[in-house]
Amino acid sequence: MTRISISECQSYNIKDVQNAVNCCLDNLGGISSFIKPESRVLIKPNVLIAKAPKEAATTHPIIIEAIINSVKSAGAVPIVGDSPGGPVGNLERYWKATGIREVCNRLDIEIVNFESAGVYKKKLNGNHYYISKQVLDADFIINVPKIKTHGLTVFTCAIKNMYGVVPGLKKTEYHKEAPKPSDFSKLVVDIFSLSKPRLNIVDGIIGMEGMGPSAGNPKELGMILVSTDAIALDSYICHILGKDPMKVPITKIAYEKGLGEADINRIEIMGHKPEVMKDFKWPPNLASSLDMIPSSIAKGLMKFYWSRPAIDSDLCTNCKTCVKSCPVEALSNGVYIPEFDYPECINCLCCAEMCPEKAVYLEKSVLTKLFSRSD
């Protein structure tokens, strides 16, 4: 039976977090049962965007600090690395904004650059994938995601976090190659299976609900979770947040491929057992809402059934991050705010994901508003 170790943790105080991480690891045999002395251990956080920890869009730096301390206690060599979600530009600003640079400087830990290290080209299921050499050359990978919703994939945590092992703008190219949520989810699962994290430590103290992964709202969840099985983690977390794991395409695909456990009855919980939350806010699931339209009239109505990104002019600062992030160049520089070329837009929501001001929102047709559901 798959095991998940959970500790209750209500704050990002380093003593509280360290105790919670140590407790979770001890329940699973201790950190030394996973890593060998002198091994090079890559700690892979979620550094999606250059935002402060209080925004809850990235893995909190205190979680990283606690894991670094644990890895050092086993006599191993921790390094930290990730590739942000959009145009990279100055990587240093991501590490500084998220607070991870301060932690790594203070503890004398190297932050590795996925972009400059080169890549290994891997082929899987007929597709070619480019994975950073820093990832595949590491002796051991600790995947450190944050619990968040996702406008395109519904949920992002342990499986989706490994999408960041793809360097630079190649990530946005994959969005272009797989614009449908189901196709993109298959691609994410492929990349996860190639990157092979061996331990997953989830930042679930404060997650994100609503329009994640960067434009949602912080949500107090009060827990840290650890498991060797990323699929089990994602499944169980969805369960306690009130979502059927099989309604999350990435989780369903990974489970069906045999990459991990998704049957809640076959997952053993060690330590803290959180109650199911009934007030967690999920993003609109437009794909499932299509099932509500009778097939006999669906074709005639589809031209009136749409949802697309739009920009709030009151929030937009015209920084043009969305223009640079768009994988299909469906955004261009406008006089006051960027302008969409909607026939070219593939609804990948990279613009919403990367907007530092949360100025991008989902604009819906009247028909979509009538039939859209959040479950």
Rank of each mutant, 00 (worst) to 15 (best):
M1Q: 12
R3F: 00
C9F: 03
C9Y: 04
Q10A: 15
Q18A: 11
Q18N: 11
A20W: 00
V21L: 09
V21M: 09
C23L: 13
L25E: 07
D26S: 04
L28W: 14
I31C: 06
N46S: 05
I49L: 15
A50L: 09
A50S: 10
K54M: 11
E55R: 06
A56M: 04
A57N: 00
A57P: 02
T59V: 05
I64V: 09
K72I: 05
S73R: 13
A76F: 00
V77L: 08
G81R: 06
D82N: 06
G86P: 02
P87V: 11
P87Y: 12
G89Q: 13
N90Q: 05
L91M: 12
E92T: 04
R93L: 13
Y94D: 03
Y94I: 05
G99D: 05
I100R: 03
I100F: 00
R106D: 13
L107S: 14
E110D: 01
I111M: 12
F114M: 05
F114S: 03
G118P: 10
K123V: 15
N127C: 14
H128R: 12
Y130S: 05
Y130H: 02
K133M: 11
D137E: 11
F140T: 10
T149E: 03
G151Q: 06
V154L: 04
F155Y: 06
F155A: 04
A158Q: 06
K160E: 03
M162I: 09
M162R: 00
Y163P: 09
G164C: 04
K171P: 15
E173Q: 09
E177V: 10
K180D: 05
V189K: 03
F192H: 10
S193W: 02
L194D: 10
L194W: 09
L199S: 06
V202A: 02
I205R: 07
E209H: 15
G212D: 00
P213C: 15
A215E: 01
G216D: 07
N217V: 12
P218A: 14
P218C: 12
L225V: 09
V226Y: 03
S227L: 08
A230W: 01
D234L: 08
C238M: 10
H239K: 14
I240A: 01
K243M: 14
D244L: 07
V248L: 06
T251W: 01
A254L: 13
Y255W: 12
Y255H: 13
G258E: 08
G260V: 12
E261P: 11
A262V: 04
I267P: 01
I269G: 14
M270Q: 07
E275A: 04
V276A: 15
M277I: 15
D279H: 14
F280P: 12
P283C: 03
I293D: 08
S296V: 07
K299V: 10
W306C: 08
D312P: 06
N318T: 02
T321Q: 13
V328M: 00
E329P: 04
G334S: 01
V335E: 07
V335C: 09
F340E: 03
Y342P: 11
N347S: 03
C351E: 15
C351F: 14
A352P: 05
M354Q: 14
V360K: 02
V360P: 01
Y361A: 11
S365L: 09
K369H: 04
